[in-house]
Amino acid sequence: MRNNLILGTLLTSIFVFAALISFVWTPFPHTAMDIPNKLQSMGGEHLLGTDHFGRDILSMIMVGARTSIAVALVAVGIGMGLGVPLGLFAAAKHGSLVDEIIMRGNDLVFAFPSLVIAILITAVFGASAINAIIAIGIFNIPVFARISRGAALSLWKRDFILAARVAGKSAARISVEHILPNVTNLLIVQGTIQFSLGILAEAGLSYVGLGAQPPTPSWGRMLADAQTMVTIAPHMALVPGLAIILTVLGLNLMGDGLRDYLDPRLRVTRI
C-alpha cells in the first residue's frame, strides 16, 4: 500500500506548496477585482478563469489553501495540545474519578454533532477565522484524548512500564518519557485524518458564511458564491470543489499510508 502514501503525500504537498507560494507570489493579486472581465472560463489569461467580480480563481485557490490549511492545522494543534495530555492523564489515573470525569466529558462533546455546535459557536461569538479554528479545535480534543488514553492503557500493562515504576519514576514522567513516544505514530495518523476533517469543516463553515470573512478567500465561500452561477459559469464551483476533494482525498490517503508504513501492528491493536 505504498502507493497510497505516495499519491496522498503528492496531492497534499501540491496544496501545501501552493499555499506557501501564495505568500510570495500569486498570478494576480487575489483581491483585485476586474469587473469587465468577470466569469471568464478556464484556460485564458486567467488559467482557472475568473469569478463574478473578475478575480483570478487560481490566485484565490492558492490563498484559500492558506486559510484552509491554517485553520485545520491550528485546530488539530488545539486538539492534540489539550486532548493528548488529557488522555494520558486519564490513562495514568485509570479507574479513578478523574478518569471518569474526563472520559464522560469527552462523551458529552462527542454526543453533539460537531458542525452544528461549530455553527453555534461562530454564530454566538461572531464569524471569523479565529472562531472557526476554536470551534473545530474543540471537537478535536476528545478524539485525541480518547485515542491516546486507549493506547496508553494497553501500554501501562506492559513490562517496561512496570520496570519504570519499580525504578521509582512518577506517573507523569512515565507518561511523557515512555508512553508518549509509543503513541506518537498513532497520533500522527489520527492527526492527518483530523486535518482533512478540519479542512472539510472549515469549508462547511465558510460555505454558510461563518468562516473567514471577505475579502480573505476561502474555498467554502467560493463554493457558496458559485451557487447561483453554476449554470452560467460552472468553473466557479468546479475549481474550489475539486480543490477540497483532492486535498481531503490526499490527506486521507496519506493518513492511511502512514498508518501502514509507520507500524503495521497498530492495525491490530487499533480499537
Binding site: T31, M33, I35, Q213, P214, P215
Partner: peptide, 22 residues
C-alpha cells in the same frame, strides 16, 4: 452582500479599510 465586497475593495484602493460584517 455582493455590492459590499466590491465597495470594500474600492475603498481599500484609497486607503480605507472597511471590515465586512454580514
Amino acid at each position: 452582500r455582493r455590492g459590499g465586497e466590491i465597495i470594500a475593495a474600492q475603498l481599500a484602493d484609497v486607503g480605507i479599510t472597511a471590515k465586512i460584517n454580514n
